[in-house]
Design a protein around this nucleic acid. Structure first.
Lengths: 148, 148
DNA sequence: TATTGTTATACTCTATAACTATA
DNA sequence: TATAGTTATAGAGTATAACAATA
């Protein structure tokens, strides 16, 4: 147990299960925190995605859903005073979605409210945090390859 | 760059962002693979959760949703011939959900179809896979603490 | 013609509350 | 009375197809 060589490396399939479990737990915490501040997880995800202004179409891409959904999601964020739409300068077809000051506040509250997640990662030693960050950085571009 | 000491360890907050990105990419791949086999991501998640028989109530707990939702989800899985309900032996109120042979087949097909994810994790060296597995094992019980 | 955003439609997921049948 | 599962209802997310305005 003291040496790393005694353990057999897990298969990619086993690793997928563990990462799935971590991802699921993360999103459960995220959704719960968002809910405590009156947001669905889709709304909170969208709010995160518009911290810099983004056209509706591009937002759909970031959220991984059809463009037609984004209309409703942004409608509700706008009704809550958390986001706003502006006509684009160059092309009058496109609308740019931005976050309001209140939106930024709520987003910070949601982040601050993810206690379980923060505690879990804070419990890692600095070298472990660095290692995990590097693993994420390695894996992410491969995972996020623009799918068909 | 050759020594680990030159890099400052990332904060818990930064790590959360990276892990969120990995988790989101994973679930996008999962949902796409499920969709190619005619399942919504909730249905696929439920199918994974009933590989060993589970009472309806417990399934709701695993899926992190209200018990009333599970009725519809299992209805649809049953209509597809992928799951089945049985009355419990001891308590006639509870129904046990199980997976069918066809359900297992479809689940395997979905897993096999997650090409991006498998490739991403397969690209890690054995020591990296071991390290990631250990980090998941450390973090998961803290993340998954039964929330209120 | 092609593209952006929207609308219309239909289905799924979701929670809340009320109901039933057991316990 | 308490619990397991269901049903009823309403709101939100989702994709597809069709549409208006603009390019």
């Amino acid at each position: 147990m003291g040496t790393t060589a005694t353990t057999t490396a897990p298969s990619a399939a086993d690793l997928m299960e563990s990462v799935a479990a971590v991802g699921a737990a993360y999103f459960q915490d995220f959704a719960a925190a968002a809910g405590r501040h009156g947001l669905s997880s889709s709304q909170a995800k969208a709010l995160k995605a518009v911290q810099e202004p983004v056209p509706m179409r591009a937002l759909a891409g970031r959220l991984g859903c059809d463009a037609s959904n984004v209309t409703g999601i942004v409608d509700r964020l706008e009704a809550l005073g958390l986001a706003h739409r502006e006509a684009a300068a160059g092309d009058r077809r496109v609308k740019i979605v931005g976050i309001t000051d209140r939106g930024r506040e709520v987003l910070d509250l949601v982040r601050a409210d993810m206690v379980r997640t923060r505690d879990a990662f804070a419990s890692l030693a600095p070298e472990q945090r660095t290692a995990l960050q590097q693993l994420c950085d390695h894996v992410l571009p491969l995972l996020a390859e623009r799918q068909a």
